[in-house]
């Protein structure tokens, strides 16, 4: 089970790293935000699995905060990156 979950973790992390290319390549700011959303979701997934793997239920709280903050960051992106007002 550890090996299986560990492999899953590597896959999820790899998908974050792949998303980084989207951040670097852009070209629109919106595309970069998009990748940021992917990071948030994937990090929550990683934390959920880690909470099983490390047998630390407290990580669920961490995951909860990550989930909340991903949304906050995204709204901050949308509000603060927009070029035009209104």
């Amino acid at each position: 089970m550890t090996v299986f979950l560990g492999t899953i973790l590597v896959f999820l992390l790899a998908s974050i790293i792949a998303g980084l290319f989207r951040v670097l390549r852009g070209p629109e700011p919106a595309e970069r935000m998009l990748a940021a959303q992917l990071f948030g979701t994937a990090a929550v997934a990683i934390l959920l699995i880690l909470s099983r793997l490390m047998d630390t239920p407290a990580l669920l709280d961490v995951a909860m905060v990550f989930a909340l903050l991903a949304a906050v960051t995204l709204v901050a992106f949308v509000v603060l990156a927009s070029r035009r007002a209104g």
Binding site: Q37, A67, A70, A71, L74
Partner: peptide, 17 residues
């Protein structure tokens, strides 16, 4: 939370884009 935030953020990004 992730589901609601996902849909909302998707809409917001699309709107922004």
């Amino acid at each position: 939370f992730v589901a609601v935030a996902g849909a909302t953020c998707g809409h917001l990004i699309a709107r922004y884009a």
